[in-house]
Simulated scan of single mutants.
Amino acid sequence: MSNLARELQHQQQQRGQENVRPSKAKDRSTFWLTPGEKLLGLAFAGMVCYGAIQMISNQSQIYQVNKDIQQVQTSIKEQQKVNGDLQVQVSELSSYERIRDKAKKMGLVQNENNVKVVQEK
């Protein structure tokens, strides 16, 4: 039995040494991430960068549209002011007294029989 026991003991020691050696070699050759995980990480990073660029692009377009809207609103306000001034001028120029004075200067005479009253709605 001593011969057989020594032989078994020797084989077990060799197996133990064989198990230890490959595990160290595997530890050296294994990477933290597999190639598939690296690919997925790279794809995710690319998607994040693309999304960030899209967001910045959209914000710049929104800014430009808002700027254009403000310019149009400013020009509308200016045009409304001009229209209001012109409306006041029309009211002043179309007053009855002014028209009567212009007619007298041109030599027209008011005839009560030919006057027709026009009402505005």
Rank of each mutant, 00 (worst) to 15 (best):
M1R: 15
M1E: 15
S2N: 10
N3I: 02
N3W: 04
Q9R: 01
Q11W: 02
R15N: 06
G16A: 09
G16D: 11
G16F: 04
Q17N: 10
N19T: 00
R21S: 04
P22M: 09
P22N: 11
K26C: 00
K26W: 04
S29D: 05
S29L: 07
S29M: 03
T30L: 11
T30W: 02
F31I: 00
L33N: 08
T34R: 11
T34I: 03
P35A: 03
L39P: 00
L39C: 08
L40F: 04
G41W: 01
L42R: 12
F44S: 14
F44N: 13
G46W: 10
C49W: 00
C49H: 01
C49N: 07
A52E: 11
A52K: 09
I53Q: 07
M55K: 07
S57T: 15
S60A: 06
Q61G: 01
Q61S: 09
V65H: 10
K67H: 10
Q70S: 14
Q73P: 02
T74I: 03
S75R: 08
I76T: 08
I76L: 05
E78P: 02
K81Q: 12
V82I: 15
V82C: 02
D85H: 01
D85E: 14
L86I: 07
Q87M: 06
Q87F: 04
Q87G: 13
Q87W: 01
V88W: 06
V90Y: 11
S91Q: 14
S91G: 14
L93N: 13
L93Y: 07
S95E: 10
E97I: 08
D101M: 11
K102S: 01
K104F: 03
K105Y: 04
M106Y: 04
M106A: 14
G107E: 03
G107D: 07
L108R: 00
V109Q: 05
Q110G: 00
N111E: 06
E112C: 03
E112R: 06
N113K: 10
N114Y: 13
N114E: 12
N114P: 00
V115R: 06
V117R: 09
K121R: 15
